[in-house]
């Protein structure tokens, strides 16, 4: 352990203003990428499902008309 207390860990030996922003931005980008990818998939699935529903709806209707 390089630090003896939580406050000294947060202070980063006086370099807190540099270490934490650098780590923070990196972490934010990584987490943001994951959230974005998950949201992208969710939206895409919703879209595809909606389209599928509409298409099956239309085709079943056509079936009724034809008979």
């Amino acid at each position: 352990m390089a630090f003896d207390s939580v406050s000294s860990f947060l202070a980063m030996g006086g370099y807190a203003a540099y270490v934490w922003p650098a780590w923070g931005v990196t972490l934010a980008l990584l987490v943001g990428a994951v959230i974005h990818a998950r949201a992208e998939r969710r939206l895409l699935m919703r879209d595809l499902k909606r389209r599928e529903r509409r298409q099956t709806h239309v085709s079943s209707k056509e079936g009724v008309d034809a008979s």
Binding site: A2, F3, M12, G14, Y15, W23
Partner: peptide
């Protein structure tokens, strides 16, 4: 947490890990 501080740059070197 565990890596020792750099003898020249102190704890600012921990930026290296990102």
């Amino acid at each position: 947490l565990y890596a020792p501080a750099d003898y020249q740059q102190g704890d600012s070197f921990r930026i290296i890990y990102v």
